[in-house]
Simulated assay, not measured.
Amino acid sequence: MSAEISIFDLFLQASLLVKSVMLILLGFSIACWAMIFQRRKALNDAQAQMKIFEDKFWSGADLSKLYNEVSSKGPATGIESLFVSGFKEFARLRKSNMDSPQAIVDGTHRAMRVALSREVDHLETHLPFMATVGSISPYIGLFGTVWGIMNSFIALGAVEQATLAMVAPGIAEALIATAMGLFAAIPAVIAFNRFSHHVEKLENGYGNFMEEFSSILQRQSTSEPSA
């Protein structure tokens, strides 16, 4: 029975360039998995925060008290950031004795859009890296495979009698690079698509809240006189 060759043995026998390719792909894979777990927790937390805040917001709570409650917890994040930015700008514009309710609402809406853009950027953290890993990892692995097979055939040409046993280890170690490229790329692509969809749902939820909150503030700006 022939001795079995482990993946680690094939790695040790590979050329320096193929080893470098494998280590790069291994680093990509480890980094990607760390980001996957971090992003999943961050997006789930944002979803849970949005549900909790919306339940509190639509329960009929006084907006001033809700603003003080949210602000007292520290820097607002997620949907709370939109609310704090909008209400703070609304109060500031009303105190400046602006006579146009529409100008007050427009200014408030712009402040919330800036907060929305900032929050979406935060939700999309690490997603470009996942997309990059998913796109380039198979090609990096293929490069290592081509280089390894090329070296195997060059070495094969230097002997008079070529056998499969002579070339098989070199081809096997080269193919591992392709396998590692796919191992890094597939989870990255799946995670990117899943998280992008989750971010889109959160962005739509934030946008809907922003429009509804703007309508509430518009009614307040027209029904109450400016100070």
Rank of each mutant, 00 (worst) to 15 (best):
D62G: 14
A76D: 02
G60S: 11
L63K: 12
S59F: 09
A76T: 01
S64Q: 11
N97V: 05
S64C: 12
F87E: 04
L66C: 10
L63A: 15
S85L: 05
W58I: 05
L93Q: 03
E69L: 12
A91E: 08
L93F: 04
L66E: 09
S71G: 15
K88M: 10
S64F: 11
L63P: 12
K56R: 12
G60Y: 12
E89N: 08
F83C: 02
G60F: 11
F57E: 11
F83E: 01
K88H: 07
A61T: 14
G78K: 01
R94I: 05
G60W: 11
G60D: 13
S59A: 12
K95A: 12
G78I: 01
V70K: 05
K95Q: 13
P75I: 10
S72K: 08
R92N: 12
G74N: 06
E80G: 04
F83L: 03
S71H: 12
G86H: 00
A61N: 13
S85Y: 01
K56P: 13
N68R: 07
N68V: 07
E89R: 07
P75M: 08
A61R: 07
D62A: 15
R94G: 02
K73I: 10
T77M: 02
E80N: 03
G78P: 03
K65V: 15
K56E: 10
N68C: 08
I79E: 00
R94C: 03
F83Q: 01
G74R: 04
A76S: 06
V84P: 06
V70C: 09
F90G: 00
N68F: 05
E69I: 12
K95W: 09
E80I: 02
S71I: 15
R94A: 03
E54H: 09
S71A: 14
G74W: 02
M98H: 13
G60V: 07
K88E: 08
L63C: 13
R94W: 03
T77A: 03
K56N: 15
D62M: 14
S85K: 03
E54V: 15
F57M: 13
I79W: 00
K73W: 06
S72N: 10
F87Q: 07
P75C: 06
S72D: 10
F83R: 02
L82Q: 00
K73H: 14
R94E: 02
G86D: 01
T77C: 02
W58E: 04
K95R: 13
K65D: 14
M98E: 14
E69Y: 09
E69S: 15
L82I: 00
E54Y: 06
K95S: 08
P75F: 05
G86R: 01
G78M: 02
V70S: 08
E80Y: 01
A91Y: 05
D62W: 09
S72G: 11
K65S: 15
K95H: 10
S81R: 02
D55G: 11
